[in-house]
């Protein structure tokens, strides 16, 4: 709200403009000489045949303009517009937002509190709620994890398979959504050397078929990798260390696996705790853990 001089400036300019426009229109219709054209026969002739038509301005145009100006005056009395005058209704954008939020709360707050506290199987049994949860996924998650939750680009995990890097139980998934996750795998190139990277890569590729008894990469794996990924390659969800004992490989298992071991990886899932409320997070957990999901 402009105060002081500028408030007065806006007020004066606006009032003068509306009054001035009104005066201008009034003087056209009721001023000296009346509402008449120049007269076709006496007026100037441009370019051979262009003349001033003599018809008076129609009365409906007067009423239309007057109505617009009266509406303006009333609107500016009710709503903010005239400088620092707040308007008779004391309307503000903030007030409008608060009112619509209050109305929304009245209508939905109770139902949403119930959802946030409901058992997952109850939510999963309600097709309407699952449809709403699918919509939530589409708006908030699908951009990275894909419209079908199948992951994409060897960067964003598939959420429909058995692999859950940070744990697949409801509590772990909820924490992943609410707080986000930051996964760090350091690069081992300097430690292992080129041959060492190749040997460990090969060893890791063997792990889905069981732990090899003899392997050139075995010693190094058990020295450097085992702390996070485990001796059998089962991974450690508490650290976000993925299982190496299955065929699922987020970043890819070709040259990308060599890069993962040599240069390391950093993965980040942003936190949604500020963007989604408890009921929405609960619905997403229910949707992700429902039986037809994986």
């Amino acid at each position: 709200m402009p105060a002081g001089f500028w408030g007065g400036w806006v007020l004066t300019l606006t009032v003068l403009s509306v009054v001035g426009l009104a005066w201008f229109v009034f003087s056209l219709y009721f001023g000296g000489g009346g509402n008449q054209g120049g007269g076709e026969d006496e007026g100037p002739v441009w370019d051979g045949d262009l003349r001033e038509g003599a018809h008076p301005a129609p009365m409906w145009w007067f009423w239309m303009t007057l109505a617009a100006l009266v509406f303006s005056a009333i609107y500016l009395m009710l709503y903010p517009g005239l400088g620092s005058y707040a308007g008779a209704l004391r309307w503000t954008e903030g007030g409008r937002l608060a009112a619509s939020q209050a109305a929304w709360n009245t209508e939905f707050a109770e139902a949403r509190a119930a959802i946030a506290a409901a058992p997952l199987d109850e939510l999963q049994a309600d097709p309407k709620l699952m449809a709403a949860a699918g919509g939530l996924f589409g708006r908030h998650c699908a951009a990275c994890h894909g419209a079908d939750a199948g992951g994409q680009a060897n960067l964003f995990p598939n959420l429909t398979d058995a692999e859950w890097q940070w744990g697949g139980d409801a509590a772990a998934i909820e924490r992943t959504i609410r707080e986000g996750r930051v996964a760090v795998m350091v690069g081992w190139g300097a430690v292992l050397g080129q041959d060492g990277v190749a040997a460990v890569t090969d060893y890791v590729r063997e792990l889905p078929n069981g732990v090899p008894a003899e392997h050139p990469g075995k010693t190094r794996y058990e020295q450097f990798c085992v702390a996070c990924h485990g001796a059998d390659g089962a991974g450690q969800p508490l650290l976000g260390a993925p299982s190496l004992a299955n065929d699922i490989s987020l970043y890819g298992d070709g040259e990308a696996l060599v890069e993962s071991i040599r240069d390391g990886r950093g993965g980040e899932m942003p936190a949604f705790g500020e963007r989604l409320d408890d009921s929405q997070i609960r619905l997403l957990v229910a949707w992700l853990t429902r039986s037809e999901s994986s």
Partner: peptide, 23 residues
């Protein structure tokens, strides 16, 4: 008006409209 071969119907209205429009 050139094409229709007729003067602007209300020349006065055209000038008033110009100023109201511009303002």
């Amino acid at each position: 008006p050139k094409h229709a071969g007729r003067p602007i119907w209300s020349y006065r209205l055209s000038i008033v409209a110009f100023w109201a429009f511009t303002y």
